[in-house]
């Protein structure tokens, strides 16, 4: 799979709220090669390690990708301050995306917090046939709800404190949704505890489930072996790597 490293221009910077940023970057080679669920690795001033940011949307025609991200530390804070017209040094697209061979079937997307952006491009592939459950800490942390409403048939929004949609965790509704609806596949991204629950619930109900994992990362291309993720392989445990083998894994592979 080809990937590129170059300086690419920020075309738009739409801050959607105070805690997350929303940018469009013109990077035709990356956009052309990118698949839903992949990520890019961005250089941040003064930082040795690039910051891995999942791709939220891909517009191959316009040659752009959309990145929606959380401000978590100095690196992402610097990124959030880069204005339209500024250049970012980006390496990508990296990782394996979602397996979307099953686009004809019915899918459920389950996203929590910053796990929501990487699901959007994949949801688009289901052309209105997919549903989504999106969970946020509170109304101030919510994002991309309109975008999901545009591409999904039903979108359920939840928040931990009840300030938006239904109160509770996404997993509290998941059981109910998957017993009432005949989903063939669940795609999920979010905090590890949430992914673990989603994985258990889908396995109990015999539904295929793919999760997008996160781990502290360095090279992004499978060379340094830092971003380890424990999996079951031929009946024994082994470490695979989020950047190269993931970030999307079959949930039944993961050792939680």
């Amino acid at each position: 799979m080809p990937y590129y490293q170059d300086d690419y221009k920020i075309e738009e910077n739409d801050t959607s709220n105070s805690s997350c940023f929303d940018i469009q970057v013109y990077c035709p080679e990356i956009a052309n090669a990118a698949k839903a669920g992949q990520f890019v690795h961005i250089q941040c001033e003064g930082k040795i390690l690039r910051r891995p940011i999942s791709i939220c949307e891909i517009d191959k025609k316009a040659g752009t990708i959309r990145l929606v991200f959380d401000i978590r530390g100095d690196g992402t804070r610097w990124l959030s301050k880069q204005e339209e017209g500024a250049f970012l040094n980006i390496l990508g697209p990296l990782g394996n995306g979602f397996n979307l061979n099953e686009t004809a079937k019915k899918a459920l997307f389950v996203g929590g917090g910053m796990g929501v952006p990487p699901l959007l491009e994949a949801a688009k592939a289901f052309k209105g046939k997919a549903d989504a459950i999106l969970g946020f800490k509170c109304i101030d942390n919510s994002m991309l709800i309109d975008d999901f409403n545009d591409v999904c048939s039903k979108v359920i929004v939840m928040s931990d404190d009840g300030s938006l949609g239904e109160k509770g965790f996404v997993t509290s509704l998941l059981c109910d949704r998957i017993t009432k609806n005949k989903y063939d596949v669940v795609y999920s991204c979010g905090p590890t505890a949430m992914l673990k629950s989603v994985s258990e619930i889908t396995l109990e109900n015999n539904i295929a489930c793919f999760v997008s994992m996160e781990e502290r990362m360095a090279c992004g291309v499978g060379a340094c072996l830092v971003c380890a993720c424990k999996v079951k392989e031929n009946d024994k445990e082994a470490y695979k790597h989020v950047c190269k083998d993931g970030p999307v894994f079959n949930a039944k592979e993961i050792v939680w």
Partner: peptide, 11 residues
């Protein structure tokens, strides 16, 4: 060798 459990890196 399996290697060590993550996180394996810190800046």
């Amino acid at each position: 060798r399996m290697g060590n459990p993550p996180p394996r890196i810190a800046e």
